[in-house]
Computed example of a mutant assay.
Amino acid sequence: MTETLETRFDRLILLVGKLNYMWTNTESLLIHLIAGLSGTNKDVAVIIFLTLNTTRARIDLVERLAKMEGRPAEIRDPILEHTQRLSKLSSIRNRYNHCIYSFDAESGNPKTILMRIADRKTDIKLGRSDTVDEQAIKEIEDIVAQLSAANRDIWRLISTLGFPV
């Protein structure tokens, strides 16, 4: 049974590693959007990107630059579609990055314990726990595939718009 537990856990950890790699690689494409939308070069855009501490802040910046007055819809709209797409994909990435892992004693499945405090009206709730079963593994695999497609699509948009690479 230990081998089964180790195999399941190894599969999960490798998949979360792939998710992180794909996320980081795809999020870094925001650098090119920042450069193009702000009319600067890639080096300046890298500094801006790295100065912003969160994905949300980076996406907000790109969206605000895209929405600036006078921005043509043919530039604004596809950029907003991609940033909204990334925002949706970020929730599962956050779920598997901001947790600790344990094992369910009965099923042997890995479990995530969310490292977040949920403030309620009169109390707090700590560490929501979710089982990482086969359905959850498939969900992560699906998100990795969606990130791969988003990456290709954003590169295509950067090229189409002639933004700095």
Rank of each mutant, 00 (worst) to 15 (best):
A66M: 01
M1R: 04
R58P: 02
I31E: 10
T7V: 12
T2L: 14
T2F: 09
W23E: 10
G17Q: 06
T54V: 01
R56C: 08
N41Y: 06
Q84Y: 11
R64Y: 14
R64E: 14
W23R: 07
T54F: 03
I75V: 11
L14S: 14
F49G: 01
E63C: 13
S38F: 04
K42G: 06
L37P: 00
K67R: 15
I79T: 04
A35E: 06
I13V: 12
M68G: 11
R8W: 01
F9S: 02
N25Y: 13
V44S: 10
L80T: 04
E3V: 11
L30N: 02
W23F: 06
Q84M: 11
L37Q: 02
V62L: 05
T4Q: 12
L15F: 04
F49Q: 00
R58G: 06
V44M: 08
T26E: 04
H82Q: 10
S38E: 07
E74I: 10
L37T: 02
T26G: 00
F49T: 05
T51S: 15
L52V: 03
L52Q: 00
A45F: 08
R56K: 14
I13A: 14
G39P: 05
A73Q: 12
T40F: 05
Q84W: 12
L19V: 08
R58I: 02
M68I: 12
G70L: 05
N20H: 15
P72Y: 11
L30W: 07
A35K: 02
K42H: 09
S28G: 04
G70D: 05
A45K: 04
M22W: 12
T24F: 15
R71D: 01
N20G: 09
S28E: 09
L5I: 12
S38Q: 00
E27Q: 03
R56S: 13
I31K: 05
G70A: 00
E74G: 10
Y21V: 05
I79Q: 04
V16P: 08
L15Q: 03
N53Q: 14
H82A: 04
K42M: 08
R71E: 08
H32L: 07
V46K: 15
L33I: 01
T83Y: 04
E6P: 07
L15Y: 04
M68F: 13
T83G: 03
L29P: 00
N41V: 03
G39Y: 08
L80E: 07
D77L: 03
T51L: 14
N53F: 13
I75Y: 12
M22G: 03
I31T: 03
T54I: 01
L30C: 02
W23Y: 02
L52I: 06
V44D: 03
H32R: 10
L30A: 06
T2D: 13
T51W: 08
M68W: 14
I47W: 11
E3N: 13
A66S: 00
W23S: 10
I75S: 07
A45V: 07
N53L: 11
M1P: 03
M1G: 14
I59W: 01
S28I: 06
F49H: 09
I31Q: 00
